[in-house]
Computed example of a mutant assay.
Amino acid sequence: MKPQDEQTHFGYKSVARDEKQGLVADVFHSVAAKYDVMNDLMSFGVHRLWKRHTIACSGARQGQTILDLAGGTGDLTSRFSDIVGPEGQVILGDINDSMLKVGREKLRNLGKVGNIEYVQMNAEALPFPDNTFDLITIAFGLRNVTDKSKALASMQRVLKPGGRLLVLEFSKPIYEPLNKAYDFYSFNLLPGMGQLVANDAESYRYLAESIRMHPDQETLKSMMEEVGFEMTSYENLTGGIVALHKGFKF
């Protein structure tokens, strides 16, 4: 057994830190093909509203350079591509090549070409020079990162002065009745839905567990401040089931 400081969590399990990345990769290799369908089913379509709100809060403008980190199947990238136009650039970054392939095919089928680049990358060591991006978004990806503080520091490094980070992630419901209902749904219904649609109950059980192990709203805000983000804030969406955290680099 490895020492405690070399352990991390994979859902509710304790695993070696150097094993988590591969375990998470297996989950997303498994769910990539059905990812969009399951997102609509799991959230009853509300994930589209959460992402639309994130776009509205982004301040994205024509000509900017944007990193959509853990961008998966490209929902945010698609809209950012329209906003930044031919003078701008959007990089869809993801650690998982299966998700990148699904995102690339989906966006190219939508005619999104010319200002989008697809890059496989690890959030903990972003392969870009300092002060590269006007905006970084990471939607429903941070909870899967092994060292979240290291990833946040990497994001802060590659943002331009004046740039902003938006973290859209499942969080802690602020009403106890909602919290109980959410737990029942996550652990009793979601794995069965995953089995029925994606033939994979275990991956969706992990996804539910990973949400519960993710830092709550105030903890994540503090983590962002500790690596240098300023004017940090968060907004609870759908009663805190999801939170949108914001931070700036100055």
Rank of each mutant, 00 (worst) to 15 (best):
D200K: 04
G239A: 09
D200I: 09
Y234W: 13
A243E: 11
L220K: 03
L207W: 08
I241C: 06
M224W: 00
E230D: 03
N199Y: 05
Y234S: 10
S203K: 00
M213N: 02
S222G: 06
P215T: 07
E202R: 01
R212L: 11
L220S: 01
E209A: 12
D216E: 10
I211N: 01
A208P: 08
G228C: 13
E225I: 10
E218Q: 14
I241D: 04
Y206E: 13
H214Y: 15
V227I: 13
V197Q: 05
T232D: 05
M213T: 08
M224T: 02
M224Q: 02
S203Y: 01
A198Y: 04
E230R: 15
T219D: 05
Y234C: 01
H214L: 06
L207S: 07
A243I: 08
E209K: 01
E209D: 09
L220W: 00
T219E: 14
E225S: 10
S233G: 07
A243L: 09
D200Y: 03
A201F: 02
S233D: 12
I211Q: 00
R205A: 10
D216C: 07
M213W: 00
E225T: 13
M231H: 15
M213F: 01
L237F: 07
S233M: 06
V242T: 08
G240R: 06
T232N: 05
F229G: 11
F229I: 14
G240M: 09
M231F: 11
M213S: 11
G239Q: 07
R205G: 00
D216A: 04
T238G: 11
N236S: 13
T232C: 11
F229W: 07
Y204H: 06
S222R: 14
K221G: 01
S203G: 07
G228T: 13
Q217W: 12
D200P: 12
M231C: 14
E225H: 05
T238C: 08
N236G: 14
S203D: 01
N236V: 11
V227Q: 09
P215E: 04
R212Q: 15
E225Y: 02
G240A: 04
G240N: 06
Y206I: 03
H214K: 08
V242W: 04
R212Y: 15
E209M: 01
A201C: 08
V197D: 06
M213A: 11
S203I: 08
V227R: 10
L207H: 06
K221T: 12
L207T: 03
R212D: 13
T232Q: 03
E218W: 10
G228S: 02
A208M: 12
S210N: 07
H214C: 07
D200N: 15
A198D: 03
R205Y: 04
L220H: 04
G228Q: 03
I211A: 08
V197P: 10
E202Y: 00
Y234D: 03
E202K: 11
T232L: 01
Y234P: 02
Y204V: 07
S233K: 13
Y234M: 07
M224S: 02
N236Y: 09
E230K: 13
E218V: 14
P215W: 13
Y234N: 11
M223C: 05
I211S: 04
S203R: 00
Y204L: 02
V227M: 02
P215M: 09
T238V: 10
I211D: 02
G239M: 10
A243G: 11
